[in-house]
Design a protein around this nucleic acid. Sequence first.
DNA 1: GAAAATTGTTAGTCTAACCTAACTTCTATT
DNA 2: AATAGAAGTTAGGTTAGACTAACAATTTTC
Lengths: 169, 169
Amino acid sequence: MLDVNVEKLSENMEDYLEVIHALAGDKGVARVGEIAAKMDVKSPSVNAAMKQLAERGLVVHQRYGYVTLTKEGRVRAAEVQEKHDVLFMFLTQFLMLDYKVAEREACSIEHAISQETYQRLVKFFKFLRVSPDGAKPKLLRNFADYLTKGESAVCDCEKPARGRKALGK
Amino acid sequence: MLDVNVEKLSENMEDYLEVIHALAGDKGVARVGEIAAKMDVKSPSVNAAMKQLAERGLVVHQRYGYVTLTKEGRVRAAEVQEKHDVLFMFLTQFLMLDYKVAEREACSIEHAISQETYQRLVKFFKFLRVSPDGAKPKLLRNFADYLTKGESAVCDCEKPARGRKALGK
DNA sequence: GAAAATTGTTAGTCTAACCTAACTTCTATT
DNA sequence: AATAGAAGTTAGGTTAGACTAACAATTTTC
């Protein structure tokens, strides 16, 4: 199926792909200078990276010109981006971390998780019907309470049959 | 409070601390050769690493002799280990990944998460009463079903009020 | 207790990132 | 269309981490 013949990329190279992907957006092209700015490195570093990525067939880099992702480059970039997004969602929606922290952490964890783990996370979200925008499921609203109010708020998935609602009301 | 004056360690250095911590166990000491074997590197690499860690006051390394963690080294090692353990738990208990995959991923993610994120994960486990050994909470048993049976099994934390149990029985 | 075997160290090399300084190409203004 | 300035490239240096080969210390074995 998929994922055959995929040489492993370093974290750095994954970052470059991701940034190019983001910059390219609709235009489909990025400049060395833009990439350098976004990655917070100098242009010679970008140059060296582009050389490597070009050799691996992930980007096309015209001398003094545009950088574009190849088809395969786009696929790899998208994979990383998807991991990033699902991790961000986990960190914000589940763990209720603030956006800035979540963003930073997602950026590092995205390189550390396998496709397999990514897919399980996606399934877990589906199972709980969590989405980036939509209303939080009850479970997570409960957890939010727990975080602010402490031990008193509990997950009402557990021990639901014993008393409470059943008795007093 | 805590965590002042803590120079950031590279992933590699964190790994060394973790391995020394594990090897030291009760004896409290480790040998260069053991460390090399566990990390799957050669001894000169361990040597160089020990030099660095000794300079930072995290280990004591006697020439041709034992390596031991300092107090601070032990603290740092334990922090990494705790992250590892909670991640391993998340990957196995929540995402139901197999032990081998979970172990591998925990080893890489452990370097990428902050104390803050770690603590939130711990709280989430407490909230759901998940423990390494104990019985899985209902939520996770449901998710396990969902993974094998697909969409039909759902989280019964959500939409619990509408029919089902209330009606049929 | 001396020689052999094991274990640890040193010196020097390699690679992936990064950097600065100097150079080249492109572009945009007059 | 010439040139100033911006953008990109090349050359060469730095650091962290690994490696091999050669050497030194320690431990084991006879």
